[in-house]
Computed example of a mutant assay.
Amino acid sequence: MENGPLDRVEGNANVHRWSEQTQLEKRDSISVGFMSELSDYTRISVTQNNLQELKEIWDQWDNKTKQLFYGNYGDLPYLLDVQVDKHLFRAFAQFWNPVYSCFTFGEVDLVPTVEEYTALLRCPRFQMDRIYSRAACVPTFWKKLMTVTRMSEQWITARIKEKGECRCISWVALKDLILTHPDETKKVDVFALGLYGLMVFPRALGYVDEATTDLFHRLSKRVTAVPTILAETFRSLGTCRKTGAGRFIRCAQLLLAWFYSHF
């Protein structure tokens, strides 16, 4: 059987030596005398959606419905039990260096990898060689929602809201649908959409935005969203550190789960 990308991994020490030597030769940011200009302290807001209603719905489901979810989306609901320690999160976020896109603890550099996040998301349906990217032509927002929910165009368009620069649908509307939908498969799909919108990509609090539905629409193709989740995590951390303040708008639960796995 042909080896996959996970079978071609260099030792960390070799990669570190190669990276350091290459960067020194190219005279980039680790050139002699380089100083990383970061704020002494970054005031990061870790305001998250209240996930209690999602957890209550999950806890009420029987084993058959849960197995249906596991088969389609993996064991993502375990993250609902990961408590976001705001003080811990703010503390270790101070060690994020956007120049190298990694955490630097003294002389140790540490960063979440695709392999680690894939393991933490516990979704066996992901295919490592099929990475999510936004297609040139994608269905409209309401059409994607129709596909996920199987509700009418009138039902969908009446519930689409404008939040800042993005279009969204409220969690309240999705929650009511989960509780009343006659199709168990669609009920599971809407619940998964809520998980991704409220926990993995919590951009607009209390809402699931259009960008999340685009990614979710592609999950049925068995693509992996891990590189996107990692890139957006790095982007949010970097933005906060460079400006000295801001709200972390990605999955704090997943980043903390990674942190706990190392410490």
Rank of each mutant, 00 (worst) to 15 (best):
R90A: 14
L110K: 12
Q60W: 06
F103G: 00
A91N: 13
V99Q: 02
E56Q: 11
T118F: 02
V111T: 14
V84P: 04
L80P: 04
F69M: 06
C102F: 05
Y117F: 15
D62K: 11
W96L: 02
K66E: 06
Q94A: 09
L121Y: 01
D62L: 09
P124I: 01
W58F: 00
R122S: 10
V108W: 11
H87Y: 12
N72P: 02
D75K: 13
T118P: 04
V108H: 14
P98L: 10
K55W: 03
L68Y: 01
W61E: 14
T118S: 14
C123T: 11
S101P: 03
S101C: 15
L121H: 01
D85R: 00
D85Q: 14
T104A: 05
T65C: 12
T65L: 15
H87W: 11
P77Q: 03
W96M: 06
Y73Q: 01
D85S: 14
F103L: 08
D81A: 12
D109T: 04
L110Q: 13
S101M: 12
F103R: 01
G71E: 08
E116G: 07
A91D: 15
P112I: 13
L110R: 13
G74K: 01
Y78V: 13
D62V: 05
D75S: 08
W61M: 15
Q94L: 11
W96T: 00
Y78D: 08
T113I: 02
E56Y: 03
Q83I: 14
V99M: 09
E56T: 13
K55Y: 06
H87M: 10
N63Y: 07
K55L: 11
A93C: 15
Y100D: 11
K55Q: 09
Q60I: 05
D81I: 00
Q94T: 03
N97H: 08
P77D: 01
L88K: 12
L80C: 08
P124E: 04
V111Y: 09
D59K: 07
A119G: 05
T65V: 15
A91S: 14
R125N: 15
F69G: 00
P124Q: 08
H87T: 12
L79G: 01
T104K: 10
R90M: 12
D85W: 06
W96H: 02
Y117Q: 05
D85E: 14
A119H: 06
G71V: 08
D81M: 10
F105C: 10
F103Y: 05
K66R: 15
V99W: 12
T113Q: 09
N63Q: 13
I57L: 11
C102T: 13
A119E: 13
K55A: 09
C123V: 03
Y117L: 15
L110N: 08
T113A: 07
F105T: 08
L68S: 07
W96V: 00
Q83D: 10
C102I: 11
E116K: 06
Q67N: 10
F89K: 07
P98S: 10
F89L: 12
L121D: 00
K55C: 06
P77K: 02
E116M: 10
N97F: 03
H87P: 05
N97A: 03
F89I: 01
Y117G: 02
H87L: 11
F69Q: 02
L54F: 04
Y78N: 07
D85A: 05
R125P: 04
L88A: 13
S101I: 00
Y100I: 11
L68D: 06
T65M: 13
E107S: 11
N63P: 04
S101W: 10
L88C: 04
L80W: 00
Q67T: 07
E116A: 10
S101Q: 13
